[in-house]
Nucleic acid binder design. Structure first.
Lengths: 155, 155
DNA sequence: TGACAATAAGTGTTACAACACCTATCATTC
DNA sequence: GAATGATAGGTGTTGTAACACTTATTGTCA
């Protein structure tokens, strides 16, 4: 039997193991999804990474978060938080303020414009989500979530 | 019940749907794996993308492949194949030759040095694979592979 | 309290990703 | 067989990722 992924990548040889196929499946699927999300966000002038930051800051509310806390909550690690926040500030989607209590910290907060952007963007993201994952059964989704969690936990 | 991913990303609110959680799970897991693979490859001076190209060209053998064919086989799409191949050629891991039959095509082939690099790199990649996926049951791996294939096929 | 470690942010630099546009070569058709 | 369109590469430019290094501020403890 020939796997779907094998045909997709036009591989001539079968995968040496299920683990190898699962590894590539995860990377390939994420690449497809990330690309679609980027396309959906492009009309709004932001990247998936920036969208992720805005959602994190919306979740934090009025208290905001410092750069390190934002980094901890990101889906994919960002090795240059200051400049990433700087760009979002330039776009007026967040504000940055030095924390008077601990002047090492810079607290970032989402602005009204940022919240508004998220409101407009959300349906587009949900459309991608519905198209790609909407037809999967509850059972399949649970299996995916648990399997992927096991991969992330493994050490 | 609080999901693992929710705790991982320090989210205060639960996911609105299983589909939303699965989507983020895929992206998050791929980011973790990609980061580990990049770390494993760093001592050898290549990126996961470059490693992917070398494996593709090794699979193609002496016939080699043209740029478009390489792009079709990549796990993640690369929007700048010429310069990517140019870099690998500069590192002496591949050769490029204009096809005499159709002078539009440039055939890329892996070199002995490229094959040698793959041989040295493979154990490191397999170590990541074994660590992250080695403990999963056959059943879990199959579920993952099938679930992810369903996501990629959905339209 | 004064030195030193730890933490958070910022900066400088390099390489790569992404996009749009341009060039060369070949197939097709009238 | 000249014009047209399609296909494969290449180039120019901009922005961002990645990494190492520096600065500023705070905590700790001899």
């Amino acid at each position: 039997m020939t796997s779907l992924l094998q045909a997709e990548l036009k591989q001539t040889r079968p995968f040496p193991s299920a683990a190898a196929e699962a590894l590539l499946s995860i990377l390939r699927t994420a690449a497809v999804l990330d690309h679609e999300l980027a396309d959906a966000l492009k009309p709004f002038g932001i990247t998936p990474t920036q969208h992720n930051v805005l959602r994190i800051l919306r979740g934090a509310g009025e208290d905001g978060l410092c750069g390190r806390e934002v980094a901890e909550r990101m889906v994919a690690s960002v090795p240059d938080v200051p400049r990433m926040l700087e760009r979002l500030e330039a776009m007026k989607f967040i504000t940055r303020e030095r924390d008077p209590g601990d002047r090492r910290h810079v607290t970032a907060r989402i602005t009204a414009a940022g919240r508004q952007l998220l409101t407009r963007v959300t349906p587009e993201i949900e459309a991608v989500q519905a198209r790609r994952l909407g037809q999967l059964s509850k059972r399949t989704l649970t299996n995916l979530i648990e399997g992927l969690a096991a991969v992330r936990e493994a050490r």
